[in-house]
Write a protein that binds this DNA or RNA. Structure first.
Lengths: 212, 212, 212, 212
DNA sequence: GATGAATGAGGATTCATTCAT
DNA sequence: TATGAATGAATCCTCATTCAT
């Protein structure tokens, strides 16, 4: 085959390395300085020229995309694993807890979530969609099982989670958020048998009604 | 005291007027463009020279301070009014609800809260202190009455409230936040059969009354 | 009257000076480096900060405008003076000669003319219009007097003049252009019967054959 | 001669092909975007890597050279053909007319001519030399035949021609230039006494006919 | 006190050119 | 040889901030 028809020749080793470096640097820098951070700072931290950064990611959005998309996917996959858990309420609780961990580790996560709420870029739409579906599937199960109130939509939960995590600067924020999520999930539970009965007396199963 | 030694003599009329104008403009501009907004934009909107703005508020922080401090105080005072309410849990719930309203109206509020969490400026310290005390007093009563879990500190609540409000861009955010706060307060309640019964028994509609 | 209502307070002395400096520098720099020249080079040559340049002329076009508009007007006025000359052909010849001088002195002129032909900015339209009218009035008189061929429009003349001047780099270009314009005006003259006859006598029709 | 010492051995087939591609692309790109056009744009259009372009043409000038030299030669050869024409004045007129056509078709021509005047690169020197000789030979004949004024040098003519063509953007530029060249050649003709007399004779007001 | 001019640092972006593969 | 990645200089433009009037 002719060289010219070979569209995807082996990517050059240094190119791959640099791409990776830039991504790493971008995570760190966007984290520290927010999404407005200087691209030159990213390049410098990555140890590459600014031109190299631009070659790999022609626009700021492209860089965002590359940094955050995978993180969103991982969080989404986590939800899928948890769908097989026995207790649906606990599954949701665990997802939220794991998500906190996730945010703590791969901090870029937060920016991705913020993006999902604030912007309307392609990435934001993707993120919102993906996460909404992830939480939605967990929520739905719990509601269908009659263990959770039906008036909370996935977007609400996403907002709550995101919001609680958002200010993750102060030391100890993790335990604070974990406490809050705990309270929150408690609030979501359909309350005690008596309560439940009372509520069951009413129509019940409104979950199906949601547009889903 | 002699007039000449009086440091704060009659402030010139136009100076007062300009100060007010700048404050108004700053609220509007920071609201629209975030706290990074251009100070020249503020001056222009206020109809004064940039130099005038700087005379009144030598640093960006000073301007923030002047814009937001009063808003924080108002929110704090609200808590004091609610201390006299009968049901301490409902008092807290109502404070949170009112705070949402507050944020919806005087949007600068959010910036003030964000500041409280993120920065460590004088204003931030002041805000944090003030709001923590406000929420703390409500929380304390409810805990003391045995109606609320004791493992949540005021800072947690502040974070939860702030976080939930933070993404106030999408239309309908208010009702979303109100739903979430409702769930949250439910989660805060000490769960006892008696209480539950009581709830069902009594009219107890404050939360239910909202359109939900 | 209140300061606020005084829209055009006396322009600050240094501001005026700087504006003038920038204009001077711009003329020189655009001349040397063409219209693509760096604005920072202009600022540097003017001895002002780049910000100052931008304050006075927010866009590159604004600067062009300020630099060239007046030159075009002067050239136009020259045509008006010449309308009162006795011999219309000589008036046109003199205008062209003076224009060469003009170009030699205020070299920015050339750029203005180039602009008139190439771009379609407001300035270009203005220039084209103004110069077309200027030449047109001279041309018209000569044609009306039966001393000049009628198949040449002002735009043609403008192009000829502009073109001949365009390469004004080599030493001695002025005399070259003056010679050429002389030839050109000769060619514009209505040719006597005798000459015409002579020409017709010979075969020599290639030029006549063209659509003309 | 030994194959090994032969500096210009079989040029690799693809190398030849690429060279040609680059040249074609360069013509097109320089035409569209002027001589400042991006070399990467050229490479992209040629479908080769930027490195390949540089291998074939180490400097921008080299590329210019390769693109334009042949065009200049063609124009020069045209002059030689016309030397055998009967009427020397008409020969010159026809050369100029053909040159306009040439410029219209192979637009790169203009750039070559511009180069000849503005720069002093090797190519410019070559072009200037070649074209000066070409025009010079035609001019000389006409002057020698007593049909043309003797005070115009080849460089003058070149300048006139080049200048008139230079702004070849507007639609209809060709006919405008052809008209102008016609006038110009008329002006070059040696004028006779008889001619002048005749001129005064006619009153002629065709001026009114122009659209004005 | 008010004004707005001046300044320059900072950050985005584009390309010519060199070099590793 | 061909490729395209890497580099950084050059330029544009925006503001925060200081100062002359």
């Amino acid at each position: 085959m002719d060289d010219h028809s070979d569209q995807t020749r082996k990517p050059r080793a240094d190119a791959v390395r640099n791409r990776e470096r830039v991504l790493e640097a971008a995570k760190a820098v966007f984290n520290a300085g927010g999404p407005e951070a200087s691209l030159e700072a990213v390049a410098k931290r990555a140890g590459v020229g600014i031109g190299t950064l631009y070659r790999h990611f022609p626009t700021r959005e492209d860089l965002f995309e590359a940094v955050y998309r995978r993180e969103v996917e991982q969080l989404s996959e986590l939800a899928e694993h948890l769908r097989s858990a026995k207790d649906p309420v606990e599954a949701l609780r665990r997802w939220l807890q794991s998500a906190v961990e996730f945010v703590a580790t791969k901090k870029g996560m937060l920016a991705a979530l913020a993006l999902a709420y604030q912007s309307s870029s392609e990435l934001a739409v993707f993120s919102m969609d993906r996460l909404t579906k992830a939480i939605g599937s967990l929520l739905e199960r719990a509601v269908a099982a009659g263990q959770m109130r039906a008036d909370i939509v996935p977007e609400d939960l996403l907002r709550a989670f995101f919001g609680m995590c958002y200010m993750h600067d102060k030391p100890g924020w993790q335990s604070s958020v974990l406490r809050l999520l705990d309270v929150f999930v408690d609030g979501l539970r359909v309350q005690s048998a008596a309560k439940t009965r009372a509520r069951v007396a009413k129509p019940a199963k409104p979950a199906v009604k949601r547009k889903r």
